[in-house]
Protein backbone atom coordinates (compact mmCIF):
# COMPACT_ATOMS: atom_id res chain seq x y z
CA UNK A 1 0.00 0.00 0.00
CA UNK A 2 1.33 3.40 -0.91
CA UNK A 3 0.29 6.50 0.93
CA UNK A 4 -1.62 8.74 -1.48
CA UNK A 5 -3.55 11.96 -1.50
CA UNK A 6 -6.70 10.50 -0.04
CA UNK A 7 -4.86 9.31 3.06
CA UNK A 8 -3.77 12.86 3.76
CA UNK A 9 -7.23 14.25 3.10
CA UNK A 10 -8.81 11.69 5.40
CA UNK A 11 -6.20 12.40 8.08
CA UNK A 12 -6.94 16.11 7.85
CA UNK A 13 -10.69 15.47 8.03
CA UNK A 14 -10.21 13.36 11.17
CA UNK A 15 -7.99 16.01 12.76
CA UNK A 16 -10.49 18.73 11.89
CA UNK A 17 -13.32 16.73 13.48
CA UNK A 18 -11.31 16.06 16.64
CA UNK A 19 -10.52 19.76 16.83
CA UNK A 20 -14.14 20.75 16.33
CA UNK A 21 -15.19 18.28 19.02
CA UNK A 22 -12.58 19.79 21.33
CA UNK A 23 -13.88 23.32 20.81
CA UNK A 24 -17.53 22.38 21.24
CA UNK A 25 -17.36 19.64 23.82
CA UNK A 26 -14.65 20.65 26.26
CA UNK A 27 -14.99 23.20 29.05
CA UNK A 28 -11.43 24.25 29.78
CA UNK A 29 -10.52 27.31 27.70
CA UNK A 30 -6.98 26.00 27.12
CA UNK A 31 -8.34 22.73 25.74
CA UNK A 32 -10.73 24.69 23.50
CA UNK A 33 -7.71 26.59 22.24
CA UNK A 34 -5.92 23.30 21.54
CA UNK A 35 -8.96 22.23 19.53
CA UNK A 36 -8.69 25.37 17.44
CA UNK A 37 -5.01 24.69 16.79
CA UNK A 38 -5.92 21.18 15.64
CA UNK A 39 -8.48 22.61 13.21
CA UNK A 40 -5.89 25.00 11.79
CA UNK A 41 -3.35 22.22 11.41
CA UNK A 42 -5.93 20.03 9.69
CA UNK A 43 -6.30 22.78 7.12
CA UNK A 44 -2.50 22.97 6.83
CA UNK A 45 -2.21 19.26 6.13
CA UNK A 46 -4.80 19.36 3.42
CA UNK A 47 -3.23 22.49 1.87
CA UNK A 48 0.21 20.90 1.75
CA UNK A 49 -1.14 17.57 0.48
CA UNK A 50 -3.12 19.20 -2.32
CA UNK A 51 -0.10 21.28 -3.21
CA UNK A 52 2.21 18.24 -3.29
CA UNK A 53 -0.08 15.94 -5.29
CA UNK A 54 -2.10 18.22 -7.57
CA UNK A 55 0.10 21.19 -8.43
CA UNK A 56 3.61 19.76 -7.87
CA UNK A 57 5.86 22.48 -9.27
CA UNK A 58 3.90 25.33 -7.69
CA UNK A 59 4.31 25.73 -3.94
CA UNK A 60 1.21 27.87 -3.35
CA UNK A 61 -0.37 25.51 -0.84
CA UNK A 62 2.83 25.15 1.15
CA UNK A 63 3.35 28.90 1.27
CA UNK A 64 -0.26 29.23 2.41
CA UNK A 65 0.46 26.75 5.23
CA UNK A 66 3.47 28.81 6.32
CA UNK A 67 1.30 31.91 6.59
CA UNK A 68 -1.27 29.96 8.57
CA UNK A 69 1.39 28.78 11.03
CA UNK A 70 2.49 32.37 11.66
CA UNK A 71 -1.08 33.59 12.11
CA UNK A 72 -1.87 30.67 14.43
CA UNK A 73 1.11 31.58 16.62
CA UNK A 74 -0.09 35.18 16.92
CA UNK A 75 -3.59 33.98 17.69
CA UNK A 76 -2.37 31.61 20.40
CA UNK A 77 -0.36 34.40 22.06
CA UNK A 78 -3.38 36.69 22.18
CA UNK A 79 -5.61 33.84 23.35
CA UNK A 80 -3.35 32.94 26.26
CA UNK A 81 -3.15 36.60 27.31
CA UNK A 82 -6.93 36.91 27.30
CA UNK A 83 -7.28 33.65 29.24
CA UNK A 84 -4.86 35.09 31.82
CA UNK A 85 -7.04 38.16 32.31
CA UNK A 86 -10.09 35.95 32.62
CA UNK A 87 -8.32 33.89 35.28
CA UNK A 88 -7.30 37.01 37.22
CA UNK A 89 -10.86 38.25 37.17
CA UNK A 90 -12.67 35.10 38.18
CA UNK A 91 -10.20 32.43 39.23
CA UNK A 92 -11.57 30.03 36.64
CA UNK A 93 -11.14 29.30 32.95
CA UNK A 94 -14.07 26.91 32.59
CA UNK A 95 -15.89 28.34 29.59
CA UNK A 96 -19.34 27.41 30.86
CA UNK A 97 -18.80 29.47 34.02
CA UNK A 98 -17.93 32.57 32.00
CA UNK A 99 -21.54 33.54 31.53
CA UNK A 100 -21.96 37.07 32.82
CA UNK A 101 -23.66 38.06 29.60
CA UNK A 102 -26.30 35.97 27.93
CA UNK A 103 -29.27 36.67 25.74
Amino acid sequence: MTVGLQHYVVLSAILFSIGLYGTLGRRNAIVVLMGIELMLNAANISLVAFSRYLTPPALTGQVFALFVIVVAAAEAAVALAIIMTIYRNRRTIEVDKIDLMKW
Partner: peptide
Protein backbone atom coordinates in the same frame (compact mmCIF):
# COMPACT_ATOMS: atom_id res chain seq x y z
CA UNK B 1 -13.23 28.59 15.07
CA UNK B 2 -14.82 30.58 12.25
CA UNK B 3 -11.48 31.38 10.65
CA UNK B 4 -10.30 27.77 10.98
CA UNK B 5 -13.51 26.71 9.24
CA UNK B 6 -12.94 29.30 6.53
CA UNK B 7 -9.40 28.06 6.09
CA UNK B 8 -10.44 24.42 5.81
CA UNK B 9 -12.98 25.44 3.17
CA UNK B 10 -10.31 27.40 1.32
CA UNK B 11 -8.06 24.35 1.30
CA UNK B 12 -10.76 22.40 -0.56
CA UNK B 13 -11.32 25.21 -3.03
CA UNK B 14 -7.58 25.27 -3.62
CA UNK B 15 -7.44 21.50 -3.91
Amino acid sequence: VASATLLYGMSFVYG
